[in-house]
Design a binder for these strands. Structure first.
Lengths: 195, 195
DNA sequence: GTCTATATTCGGATAGAC
DNA sequence: GTCTATCCGAATATAGAC
């Protein structure tokens, strides 16, 4: 790679997004400059504008892609009919999906305030769609008589906060395997909502 | 207040901290300028440097004060001898304390990455001190035979994540009173760790 | 203690050459 | 598609007058 000019369009786009994801997650959207992103990719700052109209759109695209992947992965996962099995499936899915992409998760939760109004509304809508799936499981379990949940909306938020919190400490090389973690959290969730 | 110059030192210091707290919480440390803070206070940017050596120290002081208040309020709160009562007291204390100062809580969780290494170590140490208090209660309950907790460290993190999550949605004017919220979360915590 | 003015660096974004 | 060069504004922080 001795040359310093030329076309690399086939791979530069994804590399811009990867670099932005990593840098936004580590330092925060507002603290990262387009020049830093360009430096990671190995191009000059001006070249980034072949791949995004502006920095705001770059952030939004990363968050939108993450939420789309979350919803499609969830749709593709097995969904048992019974509420208890469905809740276990949701719990394990949530932990596994989020543990696999900590940077995107971090950005999706931390950078909401840096979205403009229209972009914020889109991401919030997708998040609500996801949370409603858990709420529906809880309501189903109450109807089945297997769950005792006084307020399904609050319990939904509580469970998701607890599960997403895994990302603040989980490391692949740590004391516990992801399977261990899934089981520990499923025990807590199961007991917390049990009839 | 027609005059545009003069001494106001008796109140300006706290007003600088208040303005920084509010602006950092809303827009993020990196996105807020010293000029914005000065504008909120009603002085010019240069005057802020009578109250803080730099922006980084201003952030650190806000976070340090928050953690100090958390630990001293906790130390001043009733601490029942039995593990079950102690866990209920911790749960209710955590929700109440955090609900009362959402901006400081938000900053303490979101702006850790904007602290320099030394400042980060201080805040992390204080946070660990607080978390250890919950972990000790859980271990005591296991010893007493009233809790069934497979991994006290993980359960500590899970409970704190769940409780702190209240701040993402709780509003004074909302459907639920703080007392309602405390009771709902205490029910979940109690069941999740029950023997 | 606050002001005005400024030194210095850096930010997002664009224009035009290659 | 990427480069170099640049516009223009804004950032932190400081100096010296009042």
């Amino acid at each position: 790679m001795a040359r310093t000019q030329g076309s690399h369009s086939d791979i530069t786009g994804p590399r811009v997004r990867d670099a932005a994801l990593r840098l936004f997650a580590r330092h925060g959207y507002a603290a990262v400059s387009m020049r830093q992103i360009a430096g990671e990719v190995g191009v000059q700052a001006g070249a980034l504008y072949n791949y995004t109209p502006d920095k705001q759109t770059l952030l939004f695209d990363l968050m939108k892609e993450h939420m789309d992947q979350l919803l499609s992965a969830r749709a593709a996962a097995p969904a048992p009919g019974g509420a208890l099995a469905a809740l276990e499936a949701f719990t394990r899915f949530h932990i596994r999906f989020h543990a696999a992409r900590p940077e995107a998760v971090f950005i999706a939760y931390m950078e909401l305030r840096n979205l403009n109004d229209d972009n914020f509304a889109v991401i919030e809508g997708l998040r609500h769609t996801y949370e409603t799936q858990l709420e529906d499981i809880l309501r189903q379990g109450v109807a089945e008589g297997v769950f005792d949940v006084a307020d399904p909306k609050i319990t939904t938020l509580a469970v998701i906060a607890m599960l997403t919190g895994v990302n603040t400490w989980f490391r692949e090389a740590g004391r516990l395997s992801l399977e261990d973690v899934e089981t520990l959290y499923w025990d807590m969730v199961r007991k917390a909502v049990a009839a």
